[in-house]
Design a protein around this nucleic acid. Structure first.
Length: 480
RNA sequence: UCCUCCUUAGCUCAGUUGGUUAGAGCAUCUGACUGUUAAUCAGAGGGUCGUUGGUUCAAGUCCAACAGGGGGAGCCA
């Protein structure tokens, strides 16, 4: 009966003392041959297990090492020491799993994030990653809660897709055909995918949006939350080859409704994490402040992580159009003094990250919702505005992260959609099923995609996206 | 993919203008101490200086290529 254990979070949050219980967890440090700092992942805090001198054999004492898994039974008492309110006065300590002190890579000291990334299978056992993944869980849970409260239907869109016409990025091929050159060929000498498992070319999904739109044409409000794959050779702190994306799609929403939902959604899940994980956020906030102290003064941020989150949930996001943004950028000192690597000279250019950062971090100092982009730099399915130049697109830019949401009102008018697809050389035959939604009961609708890891980055303050997903996948890396 | 920086003990780092036997803290091991908070004190072990090639009387130190990592850019969420 292992489940008679009490979780350390529950034990430490109680006011009650002088009762017997059993805890199980992993040793963080062992001081003075008496004091075991024990963590079971339920909370940031360790439980101090006190094994009185003489209670345990020398042989057992030697096996209580950093990383070892133990079971401790005893009495919960008010602590005599200063660092904690409660502690467990042990009557018995059993070793469940040894951890060779000479080989276990984690020590009771600070490790670099780079080193921990190399031992991703063990980094869950550190304070920092414990906090990150408990917060990640809360955010994921809050995603479902938010949409459920609003009557959205959770739709699972396919991970293996047949459509290769979305143009959302490079894709990973899915096939069971042999790679040694013996794959069946057709009369042109190309590989004959009719003989492949699915009888056609298939890939891992780059977005569930098109399928999501089909469901929105029946349930009105839906969302997806699943893994997404991009085979781009991106080596940055904000890209992964495998990441999780949330894509709501709403019938009877225009661009403004869409932006309102996105803003409310982001604030809701941040607030939920702040309520559920105050200790974890406090820890990460302090950790960042210490890191900031290493930096020169002018590079330090004005606000702590907690202050930043507080500010975001209590203030409106700044909304402006692409055209307004270009005007601001054109007139700003950075542009005039040629501090931008890419100078803003004319309407129609795509914004570089330096421009997005200027708007968000220097000019407005808050999250920004940019709308009405030129149609040339956006996807085919976005609704064309009456000016003939722009589409009803919407990007949300977050300080320190950049684009966290990309969305739009969708083009619901069949003729306009087909024309745009032809202009952009997107084969309409491949997406005939998608066009059916515009043939049969089409309606105004909108949606967006939110990169879950980028959201976790924003809330935890982690600067590298590889540190907010348990086992990151990126070019030349799929260990574990 | 491009630009840039880095690679010295298990970890974090120092190592002078190229010059004898490459150092520290933590970790590990041995011992001491025992209400400690990354416990403390004493001692010990631990290195193919990322790899390969080059320059030189002499390379951890200079040069080149490759590998791995960080940061930035592009692609985007």
């Amino acid at each position: 009966m292992f489940n008679q254990r009490i979780k350390i979070k529950e034990l430490l949050s109680g006011e009650k003392t002088d009762y017997n219980c059993t805890v199980m967890g992993w040793v963080r440090s062992f001081r003075n041959n008496q004091f075991i700092a024990l963590n079971d992942g339920s909370t940031q805090h360790n439980l101090q297990v006190v094994a009185a001198l003489g209670l345990l054999s020398d042989e057992t004492l030697k096996r209580i090492t950093t990383g070892a898994c133990i079971k401790a039974t005893g009495t919960v008492v008010a602590s005599l020491g200063k660092g904690q309110k409660l502690e467990l006065k042990a009557t018995d300590v059993t070793i469940l799993g040894d951890s060779d002190a000479e080989k276990f890579p984690l020590q009771p000291k600070k490790h670099s994030l780079e080193f921990l990334r190399e031992i991703a299978h063990l980094r869950f056992r550190t304070n920092t990653f414990g906090a990150i993944f408990r917060i990640r869980h809360s955010l994921a849970f809050a995603v479902h809660r938010f949409f459920n409260e609003r009557g959205f239907v959770y739709i699972n869109t396919p991970i293996i897709t047949g459509s290769d016409a979305e143009g959302a990025g490079e894709m990973f091929r899915v096939t069971t055909l042999p790679l040694d050159g013996t794959a069946p060929k057709n009369e042109n000498g190309h590989i004959n995918f009719k003989e492949d498992f699915f009888g056609r070319e298939t890939n891992l999904t780059v977005s569930g949006q098109l399928e999501g739109e089909m469901a929105a044409m029946a349930f009105a409000d839906i969302y997806t939350f699943g893994p997404t794959f991009r085979a781009e050779n991106s080596n940055t702190t904000r890209h992964l080859a495998e990441f999780w994306m949330i894509e709501p799609e709403m019938a009877f929403y225009d661009l403004e409704d869409n932006a309102n939902l996105a803003e409310a959604f982001i604030k809701y899940i941040i607030r939920y994490a702040m309520e559920q994980n105050p200790d974890d956020l406090q820890f990460l906030s302090q950790r960042l402040e210490e890191e900031e102290k290493q930096k020169p003064q002018n590079e330090r941020s004005e606000y702590s992580l907690l202050q930043k989150l507080e500010f975001v949930i209590n203030n409106d996001f700044q909304r402006l159009t692409y055209t307004e943004a270009i005007d601001i950028l054109k007139e700003c000192n950075y542009n005039k003094k040629k501090k931008f690597q890419y100078l803003i000279d004319k309407w129609g250019v795509d914004l570089q990250s330096e421009h997005e950062r200027y708007l968000v971090e220097k000019h407005f100092k808050k999250p920004v919702i940019l709308t009405h982009y030129p149609k040339e730099i956006k996807a085919f399915y976005m609704r064309q505005n009456d000016d003939g130049k722009t589409v009803a697109a919407m990007d949300i830019l977050a300080p320190g992260i950049g684009e966290i949401v990309g969305g739009s009102q969708r083009e619901e008018r069949l003729d306009k959609l087909v024309n745009r697809m032809k202009e952009m050389n997107i084969p309409t035959e491949e997406l005939d099923w998608y066009l059916d939604s515009r043939r049969f009961g089409s309606c105004p609708h909108a949606g967006f995609g939110l990169g879950f890891e980028r959201m976790v980055q924003f809330v935890t303050g982690m600067t590298n996206i590889r540190d907010v997903i348990p086992f990151p996948r990126y070019p030349k890396s799929a260990a574990f």
